[in-house]
């Protein structure tokens, strides 16, 4: 009986909260927020907050065409794998008061798991057989190479700061350290790293100006060109989830992660309330990070050429992260 309850609980956390459903909903909401605020920054009214959700449901209702030159299995499986891996990854982040599986993967694993959706996108695009997609996957891969260096430097800086002379890739420990010493963002040696991370997020998510891979004006949305219907919807969902995931990761690494713990009134009520409050606070933080690193940057810049993008990440952003790492290494 207990086992069944436990299994049900796990299933709940995998599929609903904080798993797939929750992540999707929040991701779509974040994406909608991004679009809305972007529009307001451009003095437009902008789409409704639920626009990404509408887009997603609309795509579910469309036909799915598989081009004759495509490899059907890979073409259709790629978006599903991407979404599933993202949904599962959420469970490894200790960003909620309730983080069932955060002990089961550390930073390096997160780094690699993050590549799976990108690889899924690349494989799907490649499998579609379109030459536009060929260009798109090339760019996607270069973008990945570009942001991976700053990302690992940021991770190492965080690990060194929180772990001292011990190996510390565990997210739980990073969160615990921050609970004790205050969020990492407020340690001045980590500020460059946080900035670098803020630059990594839009590249990882693929928003302008770092969206060379999916430039719809030049290469017809690159890897996505042949996708239609539900698979396309899943890719759009992936982007939305990634948005949430990356901002949440930022919150975990630099803003202390698990929010607050409040106990009010009866225990059960307090638990429920604190869960709700945690979620709300996290959401607010994610919104702020999204605003800062994606919307604002998007509003004031134009798309970078791929070679410039690569250079930017390996010089400016990696430089920022490296400064942090060296400062931390020097014990600051």
């Amino acid at each position: 009986m207990e086992l069944i309850l436990k299994a049900l609980g796990t299933l709940f956390s995998v599929l609903i909260y904080p798993g797939f459903l929750f992540v999707s909903a929040v991701g779509l909401l974040l994406a909608g927020f991004d679009r809305k605020v972007l529009a307001r920054m451009q003095k437009r009214v902008g789409p409704p907050l639920l626009q990404p959700a509408y887009d997603f449901f609309k795509l579910l209702g469309k036909e799915t065409l598989v081009p004759s030159r495509a490899n059907k299995a890979v073409f259709l499986a790629a978006p599903v794998i991407g979404t599933a891996s993202l949904a599962v990854m959420m469970l490894f982040l200790p960003i909620f008061g309730r983080a069932p599986l955060s002990l089961r993967a550390d930073l390096i694993v997160i780094l690699y798991l993050l590549t799976i959706p990108a690889v899924a996108l690349i494989l799907g695009g490649s499998a579609s057989g379109s030459p536009f997609a060929g260009i798109g996957i090339s760019r996607e891969m270069v973008v990945m190479m570009a942001y991976e260096l700053p990302l690992i430097l940021v991770f190492l800086a965080v690990a060194r700061k929180t772990g001292g002379s011990e190996l510390c890739f565990s997210l739980e420990r990073i969160v615990a350290w921050q609970a004790e010493h205050g969020p990492l963002l407020f340690h001045w040696a980590m500020i460059p790293a946080a900035l670098a991370m803020l630059f990594v997020i839009p590249a990882e998510v693929g928003t302008q100006p770092f969206d060379a891979a999916e430039a719809e004006t030049e290469i017809c949305e690159g890897p996505l060109i042949e996708y239609s219907g539900a698979p396309l919807g899943l890719f759009k969902l992936n982007t939305a989830i990634k948005m949430f995931l990356m901002t949440a990761l930022f919150c975990t690494l630099f803003l202390g992660g698990s929010g607050v713990t409040v106990t009010l009134g009866p225990i059960w009520l307090g638990a429920a309330l604190s869960a709700l409050l945690n979620t709300l606070i996290l959401l607010a933080l994610c919104l702020a990070v999204t605003l800062l690193c994606m919307t604002l940057v998007h509003a004031v810049t134009a798309r970078l050429k791929i070679e410039h993008l690569f250079r930017f990440y390996w010089t400016v952003v990696a430089g920022l992260a490296l400064i942090s790492l060296i400062l931390v290494w020097l014990g600051l």
């Binding site: 605020v37 307001r40 920054m41 451009q42 003095k43 437009r44 009214v45 604002l296 509003a299 004031v300």
Partner: peptide
């Protein structure tokens, strides 16, 4: 541009 974007955010849309 950044300044303008933030300004716009808090001004009425021209739509």
């Amino acid at each position: 541009f950044l300044k303008k974007a933030v300004e716009n955010l808090f001004s009425r849309p021209s739509t």
